[in-house]
Simulated assay, not measured.
Amino acid sequence: MAESLDVPVAFTDPEYINAVVDLLGVIAYGEISAFERLAEDAKLAPSLEDKVALASMAATELGHVQGLHDRIRILGGDPFAAMAPFRQAIDEFHAHTAPADWYEGLIKAYVGDGLASDFYREIAAYLDPDTRDVVIRTLDDSLHTAFVIERVRSAIAADGRLGGRLALWGRRLMGEALIQAQRVAAERDALTALLAGGVDRPGLDLAALGRMFTRLTERHQDRMSELGLDA
């Protein structure tokens, strides 16, 4: 596990610094994209109560960005330069997974964003404690959980056919999210180096990487079950 900031080993390693800035950059742009998407999806809300709930979720996502930007600056990076390399990949993911209706939007907010959060939590295990704390606070989705589960379960109970369609949608999101996660990790040398480890830092071999993606799949299945859907 990485040492704290007052231990110079990791923080005199430029590969580590670059990797952390990359990670914070991709998470920050992901939060901005989530804000934009949730604000747009709020227009599909069937009630004013639902509209306000989704808008509040969007505001929460945007509120996370400042802490990530602050951390990037502490590490000597520029937040907007750090986000820029990930814009195309994240925008393409959202373009390929645009929800067709209110319920698909809820599934995406809970299942799709949950998969991304799980991936970044896995990487956070290889960070220094201060940066790890920033990442974990940012990825807290507890406010989303109860609202989405209640709305989706109620809708399925009222229309059994909806469950089959949403289950297929959830499986599609799973595939698209894993492809995106692998692409982000593979295309950025610094992130690959972070996963590989370094001085005083553990890394992932191929077997450990496989176990990580198994855990991501299992957590996806748990979320689908909570929604009353088949994974």
Rank of each mutant, 00 (worst) to 15 (best):
105 G>R: 09
7 V>K: 14
137 R>H: 11
42 A>E: 11
126 Y>P: 01
73 R>K: 14
222 D>N: 06
104 E>M: 12
199 V>L: 13
221 Q>E: 13
221 Q>K: 10
134 V>H: 02
11 F>P: 02
85 P>M: 00
228 G>I: 05
118 D>S: 14
115 L>D: 02
154 S>W: 07
8 P>T: 13
231 A>I: 11
49 E>H: 12
162 L>D: 04
83 M>T: 07
81 A>P: 07
208 A>N: 04
69 H>Y: 06
114 G>N: 08
206 L>P: 00
207 A>F: 14
49 E>T: 12
168 L>I: 01
176 E>R: 08
150 E>S: 14
84 A>M: 14
111 V>S: 02
81 A>K: 15
155 A>F: 00
7 V>R: 09
72 I>F: 03
73 R>V: 14
66 Q>W: 09
16 Y>K: 01
89 A>E: 11
36 E>P: 01
16 Y>W: 10
63 G>K: 04
214 T>A: 10
8 P>W: 14
178 L>Y: 09
89 A>K: 03
181 A>P: 05
97 T>E: 05
139 L>W: 07
127 L>T: 08
197 G>W: 06
207 A>D: 13
89 A>F: 01
79 P>W: 05
167 A>F: 02
167 A>D: 02
69 H>D: 09
47 S>D: 13
45 A>T: 09
213 F>K: 13
54 L>P: 04
140 D>A: 06
44 L>P: 04
43 K>S: 11
7 V>P: 03
67 G>P: 06
205 D>L: 01
86 F>C: 08
88 Q>C: 01
101 D>T: 14
14 P>R: 06
29 Y>S: 08
36 E>S: 06
53 A>N: 09
74 I>F: 11
224 M>P: 01
230 D>K: 12
7 V>F: 13
181 A>M: 13
64 H>V: 11
197 G>A: 10
183 R>G: 02
68 L>V: 07
84 A>W: 12
54 L>R: 12
227 L>H: 00
24 L>C: 07
71 R>S: 07
201 R>S: 03
11 F>Y: 14
189 D>T: 12
190 A>P: 09
183 R>E: 03
27 I>D: 05
95 A>S: 15
72 I>Q: 03
29 Y>R: 08
186 A>G: 07
21 V>D: 03
188 R>M: 05
104 E>A: 14
227 L>E: 02
151 R>I: 06
169 W>T: 00
212 M>N: 08
